[in-house]
């Protein structure tokens, strides 16, 4: 067989080395990947910002500061501001219980935590409407006491809490499970109280996972659409979050305005991705994933 050497660095590999794909195949695969990811990932990011600034910078800032938009931003911040801290506490508590203790029904708890994550956001919203809506289970009682939940701010906050509660727990459970409970047991034996153990031993170990969970939770809380759309009354200036307001603007053919609102959330998304990458780098440095094997075949 005629050998056609391929130079890679200073080494020489016989053709048909059979240890890696031949050049043309590699080229096609890389090109295919760059094109698909470029189309699906890079382009959308570009589109958001270009469309947002289509009518100029002044229009952009006017769009995000006009009263209904400002109200939407405030409501979004309110909902996230309540949902994230609550879910943070719940998430840590649940992850703590699941990873450090044995109890029956653990599997059920873990599965229930995943509930909002697994079902369509529309169905999440539907459950709230069926519970608190006028025709719902608690409807008559709420109406009698003049409490509005559905089609009002409380409903939006509740729905937001519901759809985001898995995030912190899901991030922490695998981390805490893999760390085991030895360190905490050692602390207890040395005389630390439950709270001290948590603050000085548990917390430092989970801080990166916790950070990422909180960021994801917040991103979802601020960006939730389906569930919130169902329970909101879409009342301008009152029961619209940023995504809902963007929808309204879009349906009114105010594309630039809609994208202006969307751009706020997109910046948040980019921050989320950056934080994730940084956290992964950190765990890699600590010896997470091993270095690539030295190989002459790449």
């Amino acid at each position: 067989m005629e050998a056609i050497g391929i130079r890679i660095g200073e080494t020489r590999i016989a053709a048909n080395s059979a240890l890696t794909e031949v050049r043309p195949v590699r080229f096609v695969l890389i090109a295919g990947t760059v094109l698909s990811l470029g189309l699906f990932l890079v382009l959308p990011l570009v589109v958001v910002f270009v469309e947002a600034f289509k009518k100029g910078v002044e229009f952009y800032f006017a769009a995000i500061s006009e009263p209904d938009a400002a109200a939407a931003i405030r409501l979004t911040l309110l909902a996230a501001g309540i949902a994230v801290p609550l879910n943070l506490i719940f998430g840590v508590a649940a992850a703590w219980a699941i990873s450090k203790f044995r109890f029956s029904g653990k599997n059920l708890l873990v599965t229930l935590i995943d509930l909002p994550f697994s079902i369509s956001p529309v169905i999440s919203g539907l459950i709230y409407v069926l519970l608190f809506g006028l025709q719902g289970w608690l409807g008559p009682w709420l109406a009698a006491h003049d409490i509005k939940i559905i089609f009002a701010v409380p409903g939006i906050v509740l729905a937001t809490i519901f759809v985001t509660f898995p995030f912190v727990a899901r991030e922490l459970i695998p981390i805490m499970q893999s760390q085991g409970s030895e360190e905490e047991e050692a602390a207890r034996v040395l005389g630390a109280s439950g709270w001290q153990t948590f603050r000085r031993v548990t917390l430092p170990n989970i801080k990166w996972g916790l950070l990422y969970g909180v960021i994801l939770c917040n991103a979802r809380a601020m960006g939730e659409f389906g569930a919130v759309s169902v329970v909101s009354g879409h009342i301008r200036g009152m029961t619209n979050t940023i995504p809902l307001h963007a929808e309204i603007l879009y349906n009114e053919y105010n594309s630039a305005g809609a994208f202006a609102m969307a751009s706020i959330l997109t910046v948040l998304t980019v921050i989320t991705l950056v934080v994730k990458t940084l956290i992964e780098r950190k765990s890699e440095i600590r010896g997470g994933r091993g270095a690539d094997a030295v190989s002459a075949t790449e």
Binding site: L41, L45, A219, M222, G223, A262, L265, T266, L273
Partner: peptide, 12 residues
């Protein structure tokens, strides 16, 4: 960026 579709709000 692969995580973008997961992190990006659905309406956006």
């Amino acid at each position: 960026l692969v995580d973008l579709p997961f992190a990006l709000p659905t309406a956006v």
